[in-house]
Computed example of a mutant assay.
Amino acid sequence: MKLFKTTIFSSILLCSLFACESSDETTTPTPPDDENVESKLITADITSNFSHQVFVDFNTGTTTRTETNTWELAFNKEGVVQSNTGKKVALLMPTETDFDAINEASVSGLQYFYDDESADLTLTAWNRENFELNKPYILDLGINELAKALGFKKFIITENSASQSIIRFADLDGQNEQTTTIEKGNGFVYFSAINNQTVEVEPANWDIVLKPVTVRTGAPCFTMGPAAVPGVNCDIMRLNTSVILNQNGSVKGAKSTKADFADYEATDETDAPINQLTIEDSNFEEITADNVGNNEFTTKGDVIGKEWFHILQPHRDGVYKVYSHISFIVNDEEGNNYKLRFLAYTKDGQNGYPTFEYKLLQ
């Protein structure tokens, strides 16, 4: 898969948000003094149909843009199995315990299990829901960029060691059966059951990724009993944009606002106090290298998450309020601190283009 690397825009905030251009294979130099460090802007082209994700490495000043829909499962040395929440991939537990007995009728009435939107690696569908090796399951391949369902595969993971994973899979009717060994390396190895191949997704070094994730709206169906109609009155799963920290254990983040606004909660009510705040209410300029340690840092993947924006009523209009009054801090693998705040989610009238300003603290 092709990786598209673009420069992090070296522009001060007064620069037009969408007038800045990028060039290939370049990095942004860091001035020696904090007072001379300019704010920089990134616009992440996730697009309105969530076709891409954008990885950011603050230390080198590089972004890497990759396609969302190229994989379904990912494996790491620690035994974590991720499913691609960016294309609504889900795992299902059939009643059949024999791989060959699973067929198209097996899907009916099953619960769909998704990775948690928090990006907590202990809360992936596989690791949280007691999926086991050497037992057959069903893989919902999710959707493509046109929101068309891609169908199902039945599969068994027979090995998931530190060095490799072995997966047996086939169409529900038994056609196209394959057994593939996936060799592991650093980070996650991403696998396409559609094309029976591993694919390159994430770069070697990155701090945050701006990406689509599957989110649940409404009640889980299992809480509604016989009244449940999946996808109609429960278990409604939609894609949304989120910003996730690198879960390698060394990248940390924090959320910061002025004390007066710390208790404001996100809401879709347009006249709510939080939706009246602007960038003028931000504490961004007040965060310095001297006081950044006063913030509470965490390795939680969704410390930024979807905290920086919220859809407004009526939802059908697709209008988002960007909470530019909230600041975030990312402490990268090298120990550098960067402060950032989001400025926009729309470009040329289309959602899916989050823009944020960031600055090195030193």
Rank of each mutant, 00 (worst) to 15 (best):
F4Y: 09
I12T: 14
L14W: 09
E25W: 12
T28I: 14
T30F: 15
E35L: 04
E35D: 14
L41T: 11
N49I: 10
S51Y: 02
S51Q: 07
D57T: 01
T64R: 09
R65A: 02
E67A: 08
E72D: 10
S83P: 00
T97Q: 15
A105F: 01
V107S: 12
Q111N: 08
Q111W: 08
D115K: 02
S118N: 11
N127Y: 06
E132H: 10
G151T: 07
T158L: 04
E159C: 09
A170W: 00
L172M: 01
N176V: 03
T181M: 07
I182F: 15
V189G: 13
N196Q: 14
E202V: 04
E202N: 14
W206M: 06
P212N: 09
G218V: 00
A219V: 11
A219W: 14
F222Y: 15
T223R: 00
T223I: 07
G231P: 06
V232E: 14
N246C: 05
N246Y: 08
K252D: 02
A254P: 00
A259W: 03
A259M: 06
Y264T: 01
D281K: 08
N283P: 05
F284W: 05
A289E: 14
D290K: 13
V292H: 10
G293L: 03
V303L: 07
I304F: 08
P314E: 10
G318N: 04
V319S: 03
S327N: 09
F328P: 00
E333S: 08
R341M: 10
L343W: 10
T346M: 13
K347H: 13
D348I: 06
P354R: 00
L361P: 03
